[in-house]
Structures are given as C-alpha cells and as structure tokens.
Amino acid sequence: DARDRHILSLRFGEELTQAEIGRRIGLSQMQVSRLLTRILGELRAALLEDGSAPGPAAG
C-alpha cells in the first residue's frame, strides 16, 4: 500500500534510519522495524513466486 511504499522510499531512497523514519511518520523505531520486516518479507515472497529471484549460482 501507499504507506509501505513511503517507508521503503524513506529507508532506501533517502537512506534514513528506522528511528528517523519513525519520527517522520509518527511511529516508534520498533514499529518501523516490524513494518520493514513484513514489507521486505512480502516482496521476497512475491519475487520467489514469480520466479524472478536469482537462484544459486551454477557451477
């Protein structure tokens, strides 16, 4: 959703810390940490479902 995209933008676009993100959007650092864990887990799962994630290197 829009909040998830905003959090990712702040974390990886603006390279803010979890505490800085929390101050910007009115959450605690722990809440931001939990949200990032969930968001990144969902993205990872979606990539794996699509087969888009690179597998182990052959060799």
Results as ranks from 00 to 15, higher is better:
residue 25 I to W: 06
residue 39 I to F: 10
residue 20 E to A: 15
residue 22 G to K: 08
residue 52 S to G: 12
residue 39 I to V: 11
residue 9 S to F: 12
residue 47 L to A: 14
residue 44 R to I: 09
residue 25 I to D: 07
residue 55 G to C: 00
residue 52 S to E: 11
residue 20 E to D: 10
residue 29 Q to V: 01
residue 41 G to V: 04
residue 54 P to W: 14
residue 17 T to H: 00
residue 55 G to T: 08
residue 42 E to P: 00
residue 27 L to D: 03
residue 32 V to L: 01
residue 19 A to P: 00
residue 54 P to F: 12
residue 43 L to C: 06
residue 32 V to P: 03
residue 13 G to F: 11
residue 18 Q to A: 10
residue 52 S to K: 13
residue 11 R to C: 06
residue 15 E to T: 10
residue 3 R to F: 08
residue 59 G to E: 11
residue 50 D to P: 00
residue 25 I to A: 01
residue 43 L to K: 15
residue 34 R to H: 06
residue 3 R to A: 08
residue 21 I to E: 05
residue 6 H to E: 13
residue 44 R to H: 12
residue 50 D to E: 15
residue 8 L to G: 01
residue 44 R to S: 12
residue 24 R to Y: 02
residue 50 D to M: 10
residue 3 R to T: 14
residue 5 R to E: 15
residue 34 R to P: 00
residue 4 D to R: 08
residue 37 T to H: 13
residue 38 R to Y: 10
residue 10 L to M: 12
residue 20 E to S: 06
residue 51 G to V: 07
residue 11 R to K: 15
residue 52 S to W: 10
residue 3 R to G: 04
residue 1 D to G: 12
residue 15 E to C: 10
residue 59 G to V: 13
residue 46 A to K: 14
residue 5 R to L: 11
residue 15 E to I: 04
residue 48 L to Q: 15
residue 7 I to S: 01
residue 39 I to N: 04
residue 4 D to L: 01
residue 32 V to E: 06
residue 57 A to V: 11
residue 43 L to V: 13
residue 57 A to E: 10
residue 46 A to G: 11
residue 16 L to Y: 05
residue 49 E to L: 15
residue 54 P to R: 12
residue 11 R to G: 05
residue 10 L to F: 09
residue 5 R to W: 02
residue 20 E to K: 10
residue 56 P to V: 14
residue 2 A to S: 13
residue 24 R to G: 02
residue 11 R to W: 02
residue 23 R to S: 13
residue 26 G to A: 08
residue 7 I to A: 03
residue 6 H to V: 07
residue 18 Q to G: 04
residue 47 L to K: 13
residue 4 D to N: 14
residue 7 I to R: 07
residue 32 V to C: 02
residue 2 A to G: 00
residue 57 A to R: 10
residue 55 G to E: 07
residue 5 R to S: 12
residue 42 E to H: 13
residue 9 S to T: 01
residue 40 L to T: 14
residue 4 D to I: 00
residue 37 T to K: 15
residue 5 R to Q: 11
residue 47 L to P: 00
residue 31 Q to V: 03
residue 42 E to Y: 03
residue 51 G to I: 10
residue 10 L to Y: 05
residue 13 G to K: 03
residue 11 R to H: 06
residue 57 A to H: 02
residue 52 S to F: 07
residue 57 A to I: 10
residue 42 E to V: 02
residue 4 D to Y: 06
residue 34 R to G: 04
residue 18 Q to C: 05
residue 22 G to F: 09
residue 50 D to Y: 04
residue 28 S to M: 01
residue 27 L to K: 09
residue 23 R to A: 15
residue 21 I to V: 08
residue 44 R to M: 11
residue 31 Q to Y: 03
residue 39 I to D: 09
residue 27 L to C: 07
residue 2 A to E: 13
residue 31 Q to H: 04
residue 10 L to A: 05
residue 10 L to D: 07
residue 30 M to W: 09
residue 7 I to L: 03
residue 26 G to C: 04
residue 53 A to Y: 08
residue 19 A to S: 08
residue 16 L to H: 09
residue 42 E to T: 01
residue 6 H to T: 08
residue 6 H to I: 09
residue 42 E to F: 05
residue 39 I to G: 03
residue 42 E to M: 13
residue 4 D to G: 10
residue 45 A to E: 15
residue 35 L to V: 01
residue 10 L to E: 14
residue 53 A to V: 14
residue 31 Q to P: 00
residue 24 R to F: 02
